[in-house]
Amino acid sequence: MKPASFNYYRPSTLEETLQLLLDCGDEGKLIAGGQSLIPILNMRLSSLEHVIDINGLRELDFIRLEEGILKIGGLCRQRSLEKSPTVKEVAPLLSEAVPFIGHVQTRNRGTVGGSLVHADPTAEIPLSLLALDATAIIQSAEETREVPVQDFFITYLTTDIAPTEMLTEIQIPVDTLPKGYAFVEFSRRHGDFALVAAACLLDTDEDGTITAGRLAIGGVDAVPMIAQEAMDVLLGEKLTDALLEEAGQIAAENTDPEGDLHASREYRLHLAKVFTKRAIRKAYERSLQKLGGGTQP
């Protein structure tokens, strides 16, 4: 299992990188953490003409909070995200999601940008960023685009990014984020890709009525999805067991999972319901706790 030969470039500035992408056209491929790309090359599922290594672009490895916007560099390591006190404070959903990704040893190298662009349908970062209503900053030598993560996923492992473009930054508006949050998932073994994952953000008023929220589910379609109908059922209501059951049911009914080697369609539908319910309940409880002035669990 050895990768086929490729031409290798390790640029040291963003400008150089974008120019290389332009010059290589369809045959260029970026390598970030390599934790998805190198297994593919090792197994020769793919071979590449030009490999452009962005690990020299230190300027893209950052986490910054600026005017209510959490900015995460494309090359930020998953491990840095996991350990960041800023992220835990302003977007704890991400801090809860990241430890589910692979293992410490893969998170030490794997990047946030690589995970978003790779767009595995059950991956934790794409799902969380969808729930958080994040925006991806996409650059090429010619232009810079802002793409809402909600519009970024096209299908299985395919996103709205051209071969000449790269993702340089992710922006999350955190001032308006609901205070209750939860990321839950089911996988066969710790560190495996999830079969189904759910992310929920909720706000409640003083008497526990749900005032705002977002719910996203992964592993139930070719791309992670927003479960708006299930959320609509919850808005303006207090959470009861019956309402939770209804929301879970609607969320599951709106998914269209495929059965595969890891789980049948029926099993995924079942998981979609159970894990949606868990995510909602946990986010609701946390939201109430925040209101009560309690410390977060």
Binding site: Y8, G34, Q105, N108, R109
Partner: peptide
Amino acid sequence: GAAVRSCLMFAVQ
């Protein structure tokens, strides 16, 4: 200092 997979890195890196 960071524990990583050496099978998922190229020596040049």
